[in-house]
């Protein structure tokens, strides 16, 4: 008896309609998971380094395009120098002749969270994200 009622429920019109809707929702979910994963992969290491000396933009380096590690040396007017090492997705100052060596001790940066600053030589390295950026909590 209970078998019969459950089978009639299973064959009812509403059951099939509900199934269609559930399938629709599941397709939407799968699509959104795909989109999230796709965007995650795209965003990875997609940063560009902006190097400023004395407040002026010197060069920009797209860190996602770097395939081999390379060293660049920057000089200021007073003879100070910073050797910057650029690798895939990260940037660091490996050597400098400034007195405190804050920039060297800072190590490599991978994100736009904290910039590298060498105050004695007025050198600033900032990472900025490539492409469109999602709105943050405040704008929402």
């Amino acid at each position: 008896m209970s078998d019969k009622t459950s089978s009639s429920k299973r064959n009812s019109k509403e059951y099939r309609k509900a199934l269609i809707l559930i399938c629709f929702v599941m397709v939407l979910c799968a699509l959104s998971v795909f989109l999230i994963v796709f965007r995650r992969n795209q965003d990875k290491n997609s940063y560009a380094a902006y190097i400023y000396s004395d407040g002026e933009l010197q060069t920009t380096i797209d860190l996602s395009q770097i395939t081999e590690t390379q060293d660049i040396t920057f000089y200021d007017e007073t003879g100070g120098y910073n050797i910057i090492r650029v690798s895939y997705g990260k940037i660091e100052v490996i050597e400098a002749n400034c007195p405190d060596k804050v920039c060297v001790h800072m190590g490599a940066i991978h994100s736009s969270a904290v910039p590298i600053v060498c105050l004695p030589h007025k050198l600033v390295i900032v990472l900025k994200e490539n492409g469109i950026k999602a709105p943050d909590t405040i704008t929402y």
Binding site: L28, S32, P135
Partner: peptide, 23 residues
Amino acid sequence: VAFLITSTTAVFLYAPYLILSGT
């Protein structure tokens, strides 16, 4: 509404997350 107020298409980047959480 968020799109109409801020008039940035970037709010639609939230759509996948909202679809999952909404389900």
